[in-house]
Amino acid sequence: MAFSAGFSPHPKVSYANSAPTGVASEAEYFEVGVTERCDPAAVRAALDAALPPGLDIVAVVEARSPDFVQRLEASIWQIELPGLGVAEVEIAARKLLAQGEVTVERRTKNGVRAFDARGPVVSVSVEPGSGCAILRAVVRHTTPSVRPDDVLKALRQVAGLVPPAPPRVTRLAQGPLDPVGATVGDPFAHDRAPLAAAKT
């Protein structure tokens, strides 16, 4: 692993768009600088062995260009809403999408900050789960980032949607925004593609 130069060297690891605390995720990404070329499969196995159960390294690729973080354009969030039916969530979702802008507030280290939680929401779908409605949202990464709880705040504001029990949130994917807006692509595609194809 590479270390930064200077007075107090630290490991060259950068985490991109980490999911908020208390949220499950199946798609977290980070970049590690290394001092020599490594076999990605061996790196995957070594990291996986050191991580606790439930934290799995799914894939490791060798980066071909330094623009990885820019490729993480959007996330797909799955929000399970225990005790809510599909119909009421669908109505709320439609109300949200009908708005051009919904301002929500979040407490940060520097005080309360207000921002638009509607604009970055690209698409929303709702389906039934067991004892809950499952809302799926594709949300563009912006600054400040709009997180699942911000989307829920917006739903509460526009439609009075209040889940009777704490929602369970999972990030399903991150990657380049699909042109149609309904999903995101594989952010590793660029690094995985055969070299000739990547150059075109």
């Binding site: 605390t21 208390g22 050191a50 606790p52 159960p53 704490p166």
Partner: peptide, 20 residues
């Protein structure tokens, strides 16, 4: 687990340390 999203630094309660 249901309580963890509501408290500060929930990671201190989950264990999973290397060599545990």
């Amino acid at each position: 687990e249901l309580l963890l999203p509501l408290v500060s630094k929930p990671i201190q309660y989950v264990g999973g340390e290397l060599n545990a």
